[in-house]
Structures are given as C-alpha cells and as structure tokens.
C-alpha cells in the first residue's frame, strides 16, 4: 500500500495570495466536498463505523481558523472534520484515518472523531474536552507564550457539568481560553427547547466571561467577529466566548434525522456556501469549485485504488 502524500493541497486550502473572499469560499467548499465524499464512501461501504459531518457549519470552522497561528491549540469534538481540515488542511491524513490506514492521522485508531495533529485534538465525550483545553491554556499562560487555546463545543455540550466547573476556573485564573459554542439548535435528535433552561449566553457571562453572540452563517461576519474576539483573548490573556447560532444541514451522524423537513429546507437558504458564494464572480466561483472537486476527487481515487 503506497504511502499517501499529506502535504496540504493548494487546490483545497488556497494560497495566502488569493483574494480573501475567494480563499474563504474555497476553504468552505473544500470542507463541504470532503464530507460529501465521506458520506458517499460510507454508502459504498468503503468506510467503517460512524461519522458526524458539519455540513452547514463550515463558516464557523473556516472563520475561526483564519485567526489562529502556530502555537495556538484547538480542542474539538465529535463533529471535528471541519475544524481539523480548516486548521491543518490535511485531507489526505483524515481520509486515510477514516479508511483505517496506518498512515492516517492516528494510524486508524482514532477514526472520524479522535484526531490529533500539532496544535489540534478532538475527542468524542463532549464536555470532557473543556478542562483539557483549559489546561492547555494554563500551560500557555505559565510559559508566557501569548498563544491561546480554543475549545469548540455545541449547545448540547452545555448539559454537562464539567463545562461549568471549567468556565469557573478559566475565569478565576484568567486563562487564555477561547470557547466557541456552535449552537445548531439540535442536540442529536433533541431540540434545544427540550434540553435547555435559561439563556445560553448567560451561562458564560455568569462566570464573568465576556461573550459575543452572532446569528449567522456568513463567513465574513464570523471571520470579522472571530478576529476581534481572538485578538481580545490574546491582548487580555483571559477567556472569552463566542456563541454562533448556526444550523446543521446534514443528519447528526449518518442516517439519523427526524427534524421537520420544512425546517431543514428553509435553512438551506442560509447555506454558508450560498450566502458567501453570491459575492464571487460566477466564473471564478466555478473555477474554484472545479479545482476543489478535482483535489478531493484525486484523493478519493488514490484511496479507492489502495483499498
């Protein structure tokens, strides 16, 4: 089995010289195409186990990653492909991991939701990642690196008590922790109204953590807000939270979606690719989409041949 090339493909991640509008679109489309390919491969029986896609939430992943630098750390959750790809560009390593290859991100042990790379980790037990992210922030504080630790959580994660233990300590010790709460309104199959009493933002503010809340799937708005918030964490060296009201356009894992069809369909109007895509010149957009499709296509083809 030939080793895969894990060098990030510029057709997928774009280059720093590319106009920002185009690069943000390219990177979101990269995440989308990757996950669509993953779902296809599952249908074909080429992937084993389970997966949790972030289709519809790509703007969060891409917008946050824009502002992170080497030395920062991201702790993600079960829905981690987008965070991982936006942070590392390592599509080949992730797909190899999901196909169980020894040259995958974690040698095939981690699979879809337990990933590790320099400056990145994800784990599948929701709130339990929060204190680890805070511990990494404490390490950064003790070393005086000026770097920060990002924890991606969801609205469902807020049901677990360890989250609140961590928020308390992070605030008390002024840790450089940036909590990004992607509120996609559904915790697996359960709507927020059956899961959550009280306010969401207030949960962070109760611990004295400055919190911004934005209701958007527009990558430019997320990019802009994340830039301000991350700069504020770096400047003050203390925690902040960003709540992003978003929506998962795919099922929770592979074939489990009982949400009202009309609700899901209406949210496709706010598909981040659509929201941002209309800003691009049609021909240029087509070129980018074609390049990304070729990049993902050749990767899938390579792994399919090896399978």
């Amino acid at each position: 089995m030939p080793a895969i090339d894990r060098t990030p493909d510029l057709r997928l991640v774009g280059s720093p010289e590319e106009p920002r509008d185009e690069r943000l679109f390219r990177r979101m489309f990269f995440l989308r195409c990757f996950e669509e390919a993953v779902l296809d491969l599952f249908s074909e029986g080429l992937l084993n186990g389970t997966t949790h896609c972030c289709i519809g939430q790509e703007a969060d992943c891409v917008g946050i990653a824009e502002h992170l630098t080497p030395g920062d750390h991201v702790f993600s959750n079960h829905r981690c492909h987008g965070h991982y790809l936006a942070h590392t560009g390592d599509a080949a390593g992730l797909l190899a991991e999901m196909t169980g290859r020894s040259d995958g991100v974690c040698g095939g042990v981690g699979g879809s939701q337990h990933l590790c790379a320099p400056g990145f980790k994800s784990n599948g037990v929701l709130g339990g990642t929060m204190p680890a992210a805070a511990g990494i922030a404490l390490a950064q504080q003790l070393r005086g690196t000026g770097h920060l630790s990002v924890a991606f959580i969801g609205d469902g994660t807020l049901g677990e008590g360890v989250v609140y233990e961590t928020l308390n300590i992070a605030s008390l010790w002024r840790l450089p922790l940036f909590v990004v709460c992607e509120d996609n309104a559904w915790s697996q199959s359960t709507p927020k109204r059956l899961n959550m009493a009280g306010g969401l933002r207030e949960r962070f503010e109760a611990f004295g953590i400055p919190t911004r809340e934005i209701d958007t799937t527009d990558v430019l708005e997320i990019d802009h807000t994340a830039g301000e918030e991350i700069a504020a964490v770096r400047h003050a060296g203390s925690p902040r939270a960003l709540v992003i009201q978003t929506y998962r356009l795919c099922h929770h894992s592979k074939s489990d979606d009982n949400r009202p069809l009309a609700e899901v369909e209406s949210r496709w109007l706010l598909d981040p690719l659509r929201v941002h895509g209309v800003r691009l010149d049609g021909q240029r957009r087509g070129e980018i989409e074609s390049e990304v499709r070729q990049g993902i296509g050749s990767l899938v083809e390579c792994l399919r041949r090896a399978a």
Binding site: P131, A134, G135, L138, A139, S149, G161, T166, I169
Partner: peptide, 19 residues
C-alpha cells in the same frame, strides 16, 4: 474550586503540553 472533574482535566491539558 471544588471541581474534581475540571482539575483532573486541567491536569490533563498541562500534561499534554509537557508539564
């Protein structure tokens, strides 16, 4: 604080970073 899970997890983060 009286937060056994969090302090254990914070220790995990420290250990992952070489402490």
């Amino acid at each position: 604080p009286v937060s056994e899970a969090a302090i254990t997890g914070i220790a995990a983060g420290l250990a992952l970073e070489g402490f």
